[in-house]
Each structure stands twice: as C-alpha cells, then as structure tokens.
Simulated assay, not measured.
Amino acid sequence: MNLPRIDIDLGKIAHNVQQLKTLYGSKGINVVGVTKVIGGNPIIADILVKNGIEILADSRISNIIKMRKAGIRAQYLLLRTPALSQVEAVVIHTHISLNSELTVLKKLSEYALRNHIIHKVVLMVELGDLREGIMPSEMNAMVKEVLNLEGLVLVGIGTNLACFGGISPDADKMNELSSIAIRLEEKFKITLAMISGGNSANYNWFTSSKDVGRINSLRLGESIFLGREALRRKQIPGLFTDIFTLLAEVIEAKRKPSQPYGEVYQNANGDIPKFENEGLMDRAVLAIGMQDVIVSGITPKQKITVLGASSDHMLIDNTETSLKVGDTVAFDLNYCALLRAFSTPNISKNTINLYECASIL
C-alpha cells in the first residue's frame, strides 16, 4: 500500500469503545463518539456504532455527510456551534447541534420549519474555559427565547472545558452545570434529557466522584482512539494506546555534516534555526512533512531522532538505525497529529485486525 500511511487496528477501537461504555455507564453516563479526529472515516464510524455508540459527533458537516452517505445509522451531533452560512445544512444533515447564539438559533428554527424538520438543540454554558458558551447569568433569558422557537426542541445543556483555556472539568464545574440544569428545569417546567459534561478530560473527575449529579453524557474522541484522558494524557487502565501507527518511507540516506553551512536566514517555517555542530552524522530524509502531519506530535518507534521538517520532507538522525532508501519508519501520534493526518488525502488509511474485530463485535 502507498506510503505514507496510517495502519488502524479496528479490533482495538472496538475494545476501547466497549470498555469506555461499561466504565461510564456504571454511573449512568452515555458515551457520544467524536469522529472529527478520524475525519468522519465511515469504516471506523461503523465500528463505533456496532459497539453501541448511538450518537456520533463531528465538528465538520462534510464529515457527517460522508458518514451518512456511507449508510452509518446514528444520531448525528454537530460539535462546533453552527455558522450562519451553514444553518440549512445543519438542519438537513444533523439531528442535534450545540448552540450559544440566539441569532443562529432563530435561523435554525426558520430552516427547520421550511424543511418540516424538528431539530434538537443543546445550549452550551460558559464555565471558564472561554471558548464557546452562554454566561450562566444569561441562561434563563436564552432558554425562554429558545422554548418559543418553532421547529426546535431544547434537549439539554452542556459545557466545554480543557480545550482552549485548559480549565479542568473538576467537581466544582460539574456541580455548577448540574445545578444550572436543575434550576432551568424547575423554572421552566421542562425536562433536559442531555446534560453533556464535556470530553475526554472528564475522566479524573468521573473516577473520583461518587455522585456525578445530573451529568449523563460525555463527548469522547481521544479516550476512544488514543486510550488516554486529556488533562495529563495518561493512559486509561485497560485501554489500548497504540491503535494508530504512522509509516513513512526513507527517500535519502547519507552521511552529512550535522550543522547547515552558509549564511542563515528564515527557513520554510519562517524560523531562524540553530543547530549544534556534532560533526558528521548519518542522516535520512523521509517522504512526509508538515503538510501531512504535525511533526512535533509524532514519536518514532525506532531509535531515531527527528531533526526537523519542511512542508514535505522530514529529517532524522539515522546513526543508530542505519536505515536505507526504501525502508520505513513507524511513529505513534498524539491527538493533534492524528487530526492533521486524517485531514489529508496524501496519507493512506489502512485498516487491519479485521478478524479479531469481527470476533469482538
């Protein structure tokens, strides 16, 4: 198969999904599967659904359309608050959206009525991470408005933490979200079916909490696909962390100076690089670069050191491995690197472990 490529172990994905559903289900929390990191890949999405994921969440409508066209039957949730320019597509292609702007909600109502659709909305509450969300003091006014919008049904509230500001979804934050839900239900005589407490960063809160309050939903991507929580990136016990392997081919292997020579200006990345002079070095060039993956987010499985990269070349210290032209180098990826790699068609996607996966389903 063409290189560079990512090998994807479907059996390990199925295992992680089952483990997480059991873990969070033990305290009444439903797992929403976040597919943005795998670019809405239908083969992987199908594994999520077959292992009990009922709601698939993505920040790109194009990914949702891809999965729906492939026949993946699920409820689809738009993770990113809708843009006004995409409101009609949101109504037509998704079942649920996360919202924080009244102007957008009114447009969702308009297009829902026009298309004879009932669209479900979750209102996002700002609890300190300062990405998207309605200030708690403004929630009453927003709910009052939304309840009067035809074509929409308010199904819940949620929050997002640890993504922009790195704010922990701790007990205080989750208790506040629960309290807001309870107050809204009492004031407006409604029932909120989904209280979405956050994402893979919620693992530490969950394991340390005897009572999770009203939180009954989490949006998980990193925990499913990388087997980690998202605050300290520690492995969750019992989960696989090696589902994805990035492979790149050696296209040059030579002995060269360790320090570039000549007058130094900006490189392709806009940096003025500095290198230590360590004498002659066995170096290799790989056919992959920043156009394909976030280089700082990959870790080699072999004994090599990544020296740097331009848009489509990666330089490595080849001293300990003696790789030759045509050899391959394998890497683990973090979340951001995986996200970039799945966003480019230049990296082939290769699913493996189908037999073991079938035995798990």
Rank of each mutant, 00 (worst) to 15 (best):
N16L: 05
N16K: 01
V17W: 13
V17I: 06
Q19M: 13
Q19L: 12
Q19E: 03
K21G: 13
T22R: 13
T22F: 07
T22H: 10
L23Y: 00
L23C: 06
Y24A: 05
Y24C: 12
Y24E: 15
G25Q: 00
S26T: 08
S26H: 08
K27F: 04
V31T: 08
V31D: 10
V32W: 02
V34A: 08
T35A: 03
K36T: 01
G40C: 12
P42Q: 10
P42G: 02
P42S: 00
I43M: 04
I43R: 02
D46L: 10
V49T: 07
N51I: 05
G52P: 08
I55A: 06
A57H: 02
S59P: 09
R60V: 05
R60W: 10
I61S: 07
S62C: 09
S62K: 15
I64V: 12
I64G: 01
I64R: 01
I65D: 05
I65F: 11
K66H: 01
K69R: 11
K69A: 14
A70R: 12
G71K: 15
G71Y: 06
I72C: 07
I72P: 01
I72L: 15
R73D: 15
A74E: 11
Q75I: 14
Y76A: 11
L79G: 09
R80W: 11
P82M: 13
L84S: 13
V87G: 01
E88W: 03
A89T: 11
V90Q: 01
I92F: 03
H93W: 14
H93Q: 11
I96L: 11
S97L: 08
S100Q: 00
E101D: 09
E101M: 06
E101S: 12
L102A: 12
T103W: 00
K106C: 02
K107D: 09
